[in-house]
């Protein structure tokens, strides 16, 4: 185990954390690249996300929350249930994308210019969340290659829970992506 993984290991408290790739340089040849993405293409995420209490709790703790409604499931249970931080959607989207459609989100060398997220309903423990990802735009501005997807998250009843328009500046092609990965 390398130095970074050893450091991360001490905080990896959930099953999903331990079942996920911890080095996004691995497998970049499977990622979508800016030059190959076709605007308008749409498809389901590679994985579904079953919401567990430990997922919400771990996310809340990472946001440095201290209120027991965020970090004490026993306390929260008799008061309507554990609150989830508004950014919890991030964990769900990265899980669902994995190395499938939308995987440019994992690109080494990427920069985050800003994001848009809409939340319709809180996620509920036990729900199975499915993601649909659509490539909505890609553009060049001041020599940088931007890309944007729309990631819609539905539960098993078809209710739209949230939408994240993921947007990054990413390497322009596979060769540049591989160069970053191999540094």
């Amino acid at each position: 185990m390398d130095e970074d993984s050893t450091r991360l290991k001490q905080y990896a408290g959930t099953k999903k954390m331990n079942d996920f790739e911890w080095d996004f340089r691995q497998g970049v040849q499977r990622y979508e690249t800016w030059d190959k993405v076709r605007v308008g293409q749409s498809g389901p995420g590679m994985r579904q996300f079953v919401v567990e209490e430990e997922d919400i709790l771990a996310f809340n703790l990472s946001c440095l929350e201290t209120d027991p409604m965020y970090i004490d499931p026993e306390y929260a249970r008799s008061r309507g249930g554990l609150w989830q931080h508004p950014l919890f959607i991030v964990q769900i989207v990265f899980w669902c994308i994995d190395t499938g459609i939308g995987s440019w989100l994992r690109s080494p060398g990427a920069r985050n210019p800003g994001q848009t997220i809409e939340l319709h309903e809180p996620f509920v423990v036990g729900e199975t969340i499915t993601m649909t990802c659509t490539h909505v735009d890609k553009w060049i501005r001041r020599g940088k290659t931007y890309i944007e997807d729309r990631c819609d998250l539905h539960n098993e009843h078809g209710t739209l829970k949230a939408t994240w328009w993921t947007r990054l500046i990413i390497p322009p092609n596979g060769a540049e992506l591989a160069r970053y990965a191999e540094m």
Binding site: L8, F24, L61, S62, Q91, W95, P108, A110, Y180, M183
Partner: peptide
Amino acid sequence: RAALAHLDFNPVHTNIEWNKRAQV
């Protein structure tokens, strides 16, 4: 902790040696 909770393991966040070279 954010990398684990977000499931975002881009090396720009977690790989100390890589950042010395890549300087994104």
